[in-house]
Write a protein that binds this DNA or RNA. Structure first.
Length: 284
DNA sequence: AGACTGCCCTGGCGGC
DNA sequence: TGCCGCCAGGGCAGTC
């Protein structure tokens, strides 16, 4: 499940592989993958002939700058991988049918192709025309809270924003309007590292523990980006290679197994419709 | 406004 | 061996 570190890894791969290349055309195999414009044909017409000049990341969204000619914007190509989406940079053989889960394929002037694969079909693509703004067209992006690595996401911000809320801290961490990019895996891992139970109400967490949580969030995200994303998911780099989040999770996916610190059995509960994993001894 | 629930979707797995 | 139900979860619409 791609979260911020996985999306960041994909972004870096795309910036290595695709910059300067011109989209010659494409094929949409699953129309609902295209979130905007409404008509698939408008999407294809919009991106065709455009040069990819930069890939950005905002939360779990990817956004490519497009240029019609040097200095003239051709809008943006937005991508959200959701649960099982993958972007694969491959040697295309025109006319040959791609893999079973391929939803969209784009072909380039060099003969390379960019495939959007997505088993569960939750992933979405947008073409944002130059006359509009990404934050407006990609509504979820417009609502995102600060980036974890930005100055805006300080421990003071976290304390002031979350400190008042009457809801479990785990739910708050998954709320993309409070902080962008954290998903189920890193929320559980950050809460373990800061010794806080996922059920703890935000309002019950003191200043010192919020400072610890802030540090833990940055630590777990940094470590995973350095490792190139997680292994414990079906995440793949743009070249199809698996990630390697330092190898092990502290609690995520370890229900019933002994805590790596104290050997107490890791618990799994349901919060906000998601599974939450924690150590009942280390997290209070 | 804040918080929560159900839904979308497919494939893998446990139980019988 | 086969079928059924459950589970995974990011974002959004709907509701209280």
């Amino acid at each position: 499940v791609p979260e911020l570190p996985e999306v960041e890894t994909v972004r870096r791969g795309l910036n290595q592989a695709t910059l300067g290349q011109i989209i010659q055309g494409g094929e949409v195999l699953l129309p609902r993958t295209i979130a905007y414009p409404d008509a698939v044909e408008s999407f294809l017409v919009g991106i065709t002939g455009q040069r990819l000049t930069q890939w950005h990341r905002r939360g779990k969204y990817l956004l490519a700058d497009l240029q019609t000619t040097p200095g003239e914007s051709g809008g943006w190509l937005g991508v959200h991988l959701r649960m099982t989406g993958q972007l694969l940079w491959c040697d295309g053989v025109r006319g040959v049918s791609p893999s079973r889960h391929c939803r969209v394929r784009l072909w380039f002037d060099t003969g390379k192709e960019l495939h959007f694969l997505d088993q569960r079909t939750f992933g979405r693509l947008w073409w944002v025309p130059p006359t509009e703004s990404p934050d407006g067209v990609i509504s979820g992006m417009g609502r995102l809270g600060p980036e974890p690595f930005s100055d805006a996401f300080s421990s003071t911000y976290l304390y002031q924003t979350m400190g008042r809320r009457r809801r479990p801290i785990k739910n708050a961490l998954l709320d993309q309007t409070l902080v962008a990019g954290i998903g189920n895996i890193y929320a559980d891992e950050a809460l373990f590292l800061s010794g806080i139970r996922p059920t703890t109400l935000c309002v019950r967490i003191g200043r010192q523990r919020i400072i610890q949580l802030h540090q833990s969030i940055l630590a777990v995200l940094t470590q995973s980006i350095e490792a190139g994303g997680t292994t414990f998911s079906d995440f793949r780099h743009v070249d199809g290679v698996n990630g390697n989040y330092g190898g092990v999770a502290w609690v995520y996916g370890r229900a019933g197994e002994p805590c790596r610190v104290c050997s107490m059995t890791i618990q799994r509960i349901k919060l906000a419709g998601r599974s939450a994993h924690y150590c009942p001894n280390c997290q209070r």
